[in-house]
Amino acid sequence: MTLFSYLLVTAAVIMLGKTVYKYSEKKFTAIEALVWSALWVGVGVISFAPRLVSWLAGLVGIGRGVDLVIYVSILALFYLVFRLFDRVEQLSEELTSFVREKAIEDADE
């Protein structure tokens, strides 16, 4: 294993710990905790066995393992940004509704 592999494994273990902690504090739902745990376990496994990625890449018709990791990462990041965008818009709408109701209530008093 290279130094980089050790770094990745350490990061994955720390993030897995944080995920478990957030779940225990009820800041993550069971599904969120499962998805994030799977991701960090995946990072750990890949660090230990990089050939596994090359094998997976071959299965889906991509030449190099590292390319597969990059493609999947970009897709995952796009998905996360989309979800975040949606959530921010939703929060903004809720905030406006709250400010509106408060303004109308205060005027009625």
Partner: peptide, 8 residues
């Protein structure tokens, strides 16, 4: 007058 507590 109606007051928005923050700018929306």
């Amino acid at each position: 007058v109606l007051e928005h507590a923050i700018n929306r």
